[in-house]
Structure formats: structure tokens, C-alpha cells
Amino acid sequence: MEIPPEARAQWPYAPRHAQVNGWRMHYIDEGEGDPVVLLHGNPTWGYLYRDVIPPLLQAGRRVIVPDMIGFGLSEKPTRETAHSLDGHAANLTALMRQLDLTRITLVCHDWGGPTGLAFAMSNVARMRALVVMSTWAWPLPPAEFHTRLFPWRMMHAPVVGPYLLGRHNVLAGRGVYLSVVDREKFRSSAQAVYEAVLPDPATRLLTWVWPRWIPIDAGARALARFEWLERELSKSTLPAMIIWGREDEVFDAATFSARFKQLLPHAEGPHLVTGRHFLQEDSGAEIATLVNGFMDRLEVARQGKGL
């Protein structure tokens, strides 16, 4: 898939592709220095980070932004069974190993959290630091939002999901629109870009498959993986930072950022910025400033230790 014309002004990056687990993954790889890997979730793509990337590049970072298989400019499988939490973590692992990245600072949002953190916890030697935003990494309890029938469970219910999210693309369009603070800005500058990369029902499969992977009871498919993730994270000593949207209604800041702080007590933050679930849409530059400051402090600490 090509870059949508509406996106080109804010997405001047050369498209790159890698074969991961048999799928064609799109990513960008810009700049030089220690790598920062920016991970999106459902239903976005790398474009979500368009305001975060330039300040990171200007600060001398190497910035890598993959599009999850099934989203953005990456290949989009058309069978539900092609998607699993472990499979998506393995896709990311394949890319990180092909690029032979080390000293990675991983910035995770939404499903970029469980997939990215699963990569991080199984490839600790490649990691330098973690940044988490509006995501989760434990089995239960889920967010209150995800247990509610209206609108969340109804939206992706059997047959309803393929109709609403498939035929009508409601998550990439109005769904993201409802989960930003400055909706008018989003409508005029970004909504069409998110919709354009999911042009027909077959390309939108993952928008209703991911919601079905969120554990909401003890019978959930990914429960064991989330239990492992929580266990590994609680043992992790990787430097970490927590950034959250003040207005987040999906993973509310009070509950979810606090839970990450409990898991990673050494983490900086939580730093609250203007934003609902898609906080990058409202506070991209501020997020970049936080990440740059965090990485600068890590570098100073490293030099102080003579490493």
C-alpha cells in the first residue's frame, strides 16, 4: 500500500519493508544514534507519531516506526486466525532482529504495549528503556470501559463487529475521533489518513480482532501471556517512563498509570499530558520532549558510570 496523499506533507519518510513471519511489514528508519522504536496500536499506524518523530530526529536519535501487520502500510491478513498476541510480538521481534537493534528505547501505546513489552521481556539484552502510554500489561481486571456492553462489547460482538468495524470502519474514523481532545483538528488533519489505509472491509479485520483479545474474564485466550508479562515486568529493572493522557477514558490515568507505577516503581512519571486514548494526536511535541529528556538523563547517568 502507498502512503495516502493526505499524509505526505506530514510523512516525508522513505518507506521500508521487511518480511516478518511471512508477512510484509512497513516501517520507517530515520536518523542515527541509539534507536527509539515507536509502537502504535488499534486502529492506527506510524502516522500517529508524526508530531513525535521530528523532535526525536532533531535530538540525534535513530527513530524506527513499524506498522503492525494488519495496519497502516503493512500487509493485512484476511483470516482472523492469522492474528494472535504472540504472533504480533514475534513479528516485532523479527524486525528488531533483522535490523539487529540494541540499546532500544521502546515507546508503547495501546496494543503496542502487550506486543512491544512481550518483545522487550523476551529480548532484554537488546533493550535500553521502556516508555508506556495508555496501554496495559496484566490479565485482569480489565478497564471498566472494556467490560461495558455499550459501546465496547457491542461494537465487536459476533456479526456486529464485521458490520460496524468492517463495513463501516467506525473505529478508524469516528472511534479515534471520539478519543482525542481536539476533535476538530483531528477531523480536518488526520481522520482521512487513518481511514484511507483501511480502504475496504477485508483490510479492517484487525480492528475487531484485537478487541476480542482483551482479557475480560478468566477464560480469555491471552490470559497466560498477560500473566507472564506482568510477572516479567514486575522483575524488570529497565529504566522506564510512564506518560498518560489526562482525559483518557479508555485506560483511565488514575487506575492504569498507577498500576504501571506499581509494576515499575522505579519508572519516571506518570507524566500527564493533554489527551484521551490517542494522546499523540493532542500532545505529540510534548511527548517527544518527555522522551528526549528521559533519554538525555539515561545518557548522563551512563557517562557518569563510565559505561
Partner: peptide, 8 residues
């Protein structure tokens, strides 16, 4: 319309 997981 296709639903791959009617028993979700």
C-alpha cells in the same frame, strides 16, 4: 459479511 468467530 463474514464472521470468523461466532462463539466469541
Amino acid at each position: 459479511l463474514v464472521e470468523d468467530r461466532i462463539g466469541h
